[in-house]
Design a protein around this nucleic acid. Sequence first.
DNA 1: TGCATGTTTATAAACAACGGC
DNA 2: CTGCCGTTGTTTATAAACATG
Lengths: 642, 642
Amino acid sequence: MRRSPRRPLILKRRKLPFQQSAAPVSQDSSQAQPGRSSSSERFSDTVRVLDHPIFPGTQLVVIPKTAELRSVIEALTVKGKEHGAQGPNKFILLGESGSLDSGLLNKTAQELLFPGSAVAQQVSRTAAFTEVKQPKKQDDGCPFDDSLTNMQWLERCDAFQPAPADDKSDKENRTAAAVLEGRPHTLHSVPEAACGSLPETGTAPVSRPRDGGSIKPPFSYMTMIQFAINSRQDGLMTLKEIYAWLQQHFDFFRDENRRGWKNSVRHNLSLHKMFIRKMSPDGKVSFWTIRPEANRGLTLDQVYTAGCNPVAAPVARPVPASPRQQPTLPVAKKAPTGSGSSKQMKRLLPRAPSYLVPVQLPLSAIVCPPSTPAVGLPARRAASSLCKAKRRRNAPKEHDLSKTATSIASRRSTNDGVPIACDHVKDEARRAKVPKVEPEEGRARPTAQRRSPKMAARRQQAGGSRRKQRLVRTRHEEPLLVYSQNSDGDSGIATSSTCLDAEPDLPDGWLHSSKTPIKAGRRLASSTPSKPTADSGGQSTLDFSPIRTPGGPARAPPHDYTAFSVDGTPFKDWALFSDAAAGSPPGLPSACSGELLAEGLVLDTLNDSLSKILVDLSFGLDDVGDLGLADVSLSELIPQLK
Amino acid sequence: MRRSPRRPLILKRRKLPFQQSAAPVSQDSSQAQPGRSSSSERFSDTVRVLDHPIFPGTQLVVIPKTAELRSVIEALTVKGKEHGAQGPNKFILLGESGSLDSGLLNKTAQELLFPGSAVAQQVSRTAAFTEVKQPKKQDDGCPFDDSLTNMQWLERCDAFQPAPADDKSDKENRTAAAVLEGRPHTLHSVPEAACGSLPETGTAPVSRPRDGGSIKPPFSYMTMIQFAINSRQDGLMTLKEIYAWLQQHFDFFRDENRRGWKNSVRHNLSLHKMFIRKMSPDGKVSFWTIRPEANRGLTLDQVYTAGCNPVAAPVARPVPASPRQQPTLPVAKKAPTGSGSSKQMKRLLPRAPSYLVPVQLPLSAIVCPPSTPAVGLPARRAASSLCKAKRRRNAPKEHDLSKTATSIASRRSTNDGVPIACDHVKDEARRAKVPKVEPEEGRARPTAQRRSPKMAARRQQAGGSRRKQRLVRTRHEEPLLVYSQNSDGDSGIATSSTCLDAEPDLPDGWLHSSKTPIKAGRRLASSTPSKPTADSGGQSTLDFSPIRTPGGPARAPPHDYTAFSVDGTPFKDWALFSDAAAGSPPGLPSACSGELLAEGLVLDTLNDSLSKILVDLSFGLDDVGDLGLADVSLSELIPQLK
DNA sequence: TGCATGTTTATAAACAACGGC
DNA sequence: CTGCCGTTGTTTATAAACATG
Ligand SMILES: [Mg+2]
Ligand SMILES: [Mg+2]
């Protein structure tokens, strides 16, 4: 342990099979589970897949030291992503200490990521980037530069750079910028410093894109909105504040050339049921919140913060009270913005090839009984009582990172450390009046954090379509990640140890003018991108005559689709598992500091991001004992427990 | 009554206020409801808005004969669409007989639709169209041509024309076409005849678009998929069958130039939770079904079938056993396909300005108690028992349209009358084995048709964002239209009276070759539209270098967004309610045949389509009495009941 | 490898409701 | 007081990226 950084490893998107090994306590019957006999079962005999004893939509892959790396990788990558499309549905791998050689794993991961010739290319790029960004990183004892594994997202640190209080932003950006400017104090020494030694210099276009050079963050809008909202103690955020937060934390949204991102934010807020809107008591302001049952408590600081000594202090490195930012780099298979666009008018924001979604381990209660493979039961069980019944007093992560179990104190995580102050003073005032946590939903905040049995039942019976093609199981229809009431530092990134202090970040007071914003309307597009509208006023409405001009467009409109008749889906020829001998850069041992009891890999099936995590092994023992689940033999899974 | 056709009137999209008139039985306290004091309350004193005694997310607008048309229109159009975004959430207006002068209403509606100068334009167009299509329609007693009200959708009848068994379709169309050809018998004398006197001639580009001239149907994908699936007795349909059905019924999808519509279909299937996927017992074939609770039983035949004597027989005109097609005409503000596209590469399928969604009145049980304004209660109540407890034996709509109450027989509606035969024989065989209605969901078919209380509760507590900006009420969060177990002919369109016969349409037997399809691959795009991919093979994967080419794209990519800095949202200047005196075509009395007891307007808030319907007034009496709701005084609402 | 089927995310848009000016 | 316009919200349409078989 302690030898690998928390830095997430990103493997190519693959699905993980969710073999329903009935008995999670099965004494590591060395081979496949009783469940489905899919190919994924026949991993190396030493790799065992078990249902996670605590999280419903989760499995454990136990990887002994003797495990072959190939089998490990295969277990992690071979078909899967069974269920839990929308929600969490995490795949948690708890490897025994030392079982996962970081260096080797990284190496393999890298091969998966950049097979064949692509690897060399990537490596070279990474090297170049590394020098720009972290010239001294190579010699910190972690020779295998993390940027090789996080390559996709480490390239550009400025993606997270704070807004420079730009006044020249167009109408779209103006508003958010104003919001930002209005509350410098709430930034808590924002990124600039957090980004570590990054001089912001580097290549000119990289440092300050501003002209189409901004890079799409590796997170989806849904994820980033969660980051934003969860950065508030009260979990309430107005749309404006969300805008501002995004601009504050992602350079991408400060790019003036970006259009439509606000529309996308609103779209995501409306589309995803996890985001619900609440009105202030007076009905003047509407806040966006995250449905408690669906709130995974994601915060930006949970994702690995690159830019600084990557391998250092995985769990609770005492950050200088500044929420570190994470550099990002989208693969951008298609030139994101300034591409030639000669052919088809590139999308403004091509989808990032992969997303980095921090996995949060609710180390708090909720243990599902061992031998109940009943469908959906774990989830429902979890929803029942004992939510915060007992909380372990795990070390509050004070000093460094040793066994910082992230106290379960129900304080709302201000994890992000960069709490965007509310936009208007009015809003803030109203916010205070907003029932802390959806009172009208009939569930108090503290209790709302668990699913109610009825909801679980409904989820279960929904029997809808999951991501799995085969409909393998209706179970875990919507895994509905159990919500750990705050699991603040479980991801270990450890913002400043805001563990026990009430809430350090609500100085507030910066009332911003309600309408002061300088109308620098440069491109006064309303937040919803609109078409030319060409001749406004004239032919205003129902001029549909052009539709069927007699004589018709003989040979179709010039969509120039005909040009490329090939179907998409490139990158199919990767030969993922062809051979483990591809040209890989030096696999360096990533032995770093860290006191964690166990380290593991977390594959977030939502975005298929694989991260190495440090797990507080004390999480389940207490609760297991309380539930009579002491016989779950977690100790078997995690030798350190013994 | 009987004097207005079922032809839906389409008004401009407006929201209807859902004033929570606490007591649905309130004796028409002539003025506004106790609920919100919004402006919408102050309709003409004669118009009363009541909670619908039967349908949870529904209200009744009682419009006495003396009501001013202005107030009627206002009641129908002024702000609303409070809740029930996704689901039904209908707004039902039961006007007393004669209260709604069709002619006047049409006139007013027309003004709303085409205010100002646009009207003239529309009218002229319509006239032209009318002559092409229905040269003899003007003198059938309904001088006010329906095409004036349905103008948007009546223009092109061929939008519904059957596929001509085109073999020249590309890969996309090929499959579906093959499916169609394989089962001519299932077509039940398809459209060609149903389209009435339409000679298919007309303007050349109109009759057989084929080259970008096809017109987008006035339905959303979600709606059309429902049409398709509900056309099956078993409610099961494979993706291929859905494709085929759509091509069969909408010319739009037979247009070879159409790309991406299959992608959109799949997208909709996946996106909307109402569509759930089921596997055949052997797991070989997957069928798409509609979640019973969400199934409104929409069928294509429920929408008014134009093309023929528009004003005739609104309810149950004895159609010649052929499912009539409905002509459609999108307003197509922006040239849909072959537009110049000089500016911005027009969307292939610009959103239709409005959709026609047939409203189905579940005339079966489910009555909500009168004086329970409790939030969400009605829905939950409705979900409880007495689902199919008692069914009235209403006339099975046999002869004509008089009081055809659409027997509640639980036979799955084959309403459409054009049951698409299953694609492959294999599928059919497997289909038979598919548990009739989602067995794995833990709820038998018969009982699954109602929401369970828990579900209602969940919906209620979801407290999510509705469409209403004000979040006026959390109640009826997701109205979740009570599902009438088949309400076959409630909409009155009355396909052939397939009321009591088991199921006349499963001749089947046309086994189609599994892989016979002629590979006329003209534009072998996979169903998911893909980008050029340009140089495939090379730079296969992670070549993100172009992203930040040093020096950067100095002045942004040529998105040419700068060209149109105006914000969208055109058509704002319509002055919807400015004056009722706009240049309107001759408002003609649309007195037509019809035996209905009461006629009314139905505003489907899902798509804001306003339709005039014929209501079987016997629907609620029995059930009301059973529930002790006899005092709801439905008779007050509908004088005919007395 | 190509294709069919599914699942998600990104973007653009159409519109509704509201609020400020 | 009214209308224009921008903000906020809700939905639908399309294109795409990917996964699986
Ligand atoms: Mg939402
Ligand atoms: Mg679905």
